[in-house]
């Protein structure tokens, strides 16, 4: 188990290392001169242009040797310096990103956890009854095949425009100043609901199908057949199958985080929800390269962190790894 853990940790470290390297490498090895490119394409205010030119030459540091450039990049990173945003000049990229992150957390954590929970519940029901299987499974396939932004668009159009029940842009009404009151909280929840629902529904479909297939697989496993042969009632066989099917569903969640995050990005774009995804769109449209690089790094760090948490959860609930741990420390 220690071996398992250190292996995982090594992979995370290497992944982070690789991600930072990609982040550093790409602007330098893309065709053309990045500084020239950016400055000609970005429509900067005069004062910004001057400062930006300084920043970019320093950051890309074309005068220092390439190895030094790379070290400088890491050095700046450890000091939390990701450059300055063009689009929100002169706010540092780190600050811009930190302002956006809470919205992502607010959106992602409930939708991931709830869709995982509900998806697994319904998937397990589907594996149990023919009738539910014929309804939940097709629905699951449709939902998991739906592009996130399209579901978002449909929800926004139907509930926001046609029914007029929900706002479809921003995290709270423009005329409100954030403060602590029931009215404001209600307003925030209303803005949150539709983006949350789109993420929840797509995730739900995937989880339900995954669970259904996993349970059916577990019910055909040898230990299930043995229990049946010894006359164990259906409820006990199902209970064991469900418990064992949940474990791979946890690993599956870790692996699908990348897709979920991508879904969150486009969902935020649809609803102009001020998280990293929305920021990213603005950065791309404004050719704000430091901000793009920063978004990339934040996403990677977030996904790595979530993976790490899921790993720990897995270690805690799979008894096999726990006994492995006891065996080694004993």
């Amino acid at each position: 188990m220690r071996r398992y853990f250190s292996r995982k940790l090594l992979i995370y470290i290497l992944t982070f290392f690789l991600a930072v390297t990609i982040d550093w490498l790409i602007p330098r090895f893309m065709p053309g001169d990045p500084v020239q490119n950016m400055l000609s394409r970005a429509m900067l205010r005069a004062d910004a242009a001057e400062v930006m030119y300084g920043y970019y030459t320093k950051a890309f540091g074309l005068d220092v040797p390439i190895g030094q450039q790379y070290l400088n990049f890491w050095n700046a990173l450890f000091h939390g310096d990701l450059g300055t945003s063009v689009y929100m000049f002169p706010t540092p990229v780190t600050k811009v990103l930190l302002r956006a992150v809470p919205y992502d957390i607010f959106l992602l954590i409930p939708s991931i956890l709830l869709s995982w929970y509900a998806g697994n519940k319904f998937g397990a029901y589907a594996a149990r009854s023919k009738w539910l299987d014929n309804t939940v499974s097709p629905l699951g396939y449709v939902l998991t095949a739906t592009p996130y932004m399209w579901l978002g668009i449909l929800l926004a159009w139907f509930f926001g425009i046609v029914l007029g029940k929900f706002p479809i842009a921003g995290a709270y009404s423009f005329n409100l100043v954030p403060h602590l009151s029931w009215m404001f909280i209600w307003d925030v929840l209303k803005h949150w609901f539709l983006p949350f629902a789109s993420l929840f529904l797509v995730g739900f479909g995937g989880q339900a199908i995954g669970m259904r297939n996993m349970i059916i697989y577990e019910l055909e496993a040898d230990y299930s057949h043995y229990l049946e042969a010894l006359g164990a009632p259906r409820s006990l066989v199902r209970k064991y199958a469900f418990r064992n099917a949940v474990l791979p569903q946890i690993t599956g969640l870790a692996l699908s985080l990348g897709v979920i995050v991508a879904g969150a990005l486009v969902t935020e774009v649809v609803f102009s929800y001020p998280g990293i995804g929305y920021l990213l769109l603005a950065a791309i449209q404004n050719q704000d390269y430091f901000l793009i690089q920063g978004c990339f790094l934040f996403i990677i760090i977030g996904v790595l962190f979530a993976n790490f948490v899921i790993d720990i959860v897995y270690l805690l609930i799979d008894p096999r790894t726990r006994t492995g741990m006891m065996g080694e420390t004993a």
Binding site: L18, G258, V259, V261, A262, I300, V303, N307
Partner: peptide
Amino acid sequence: LVIPVLAV
């Protein structure tokens, strides 16, 4: 596998 494809 860990790196979100979209980010890259």
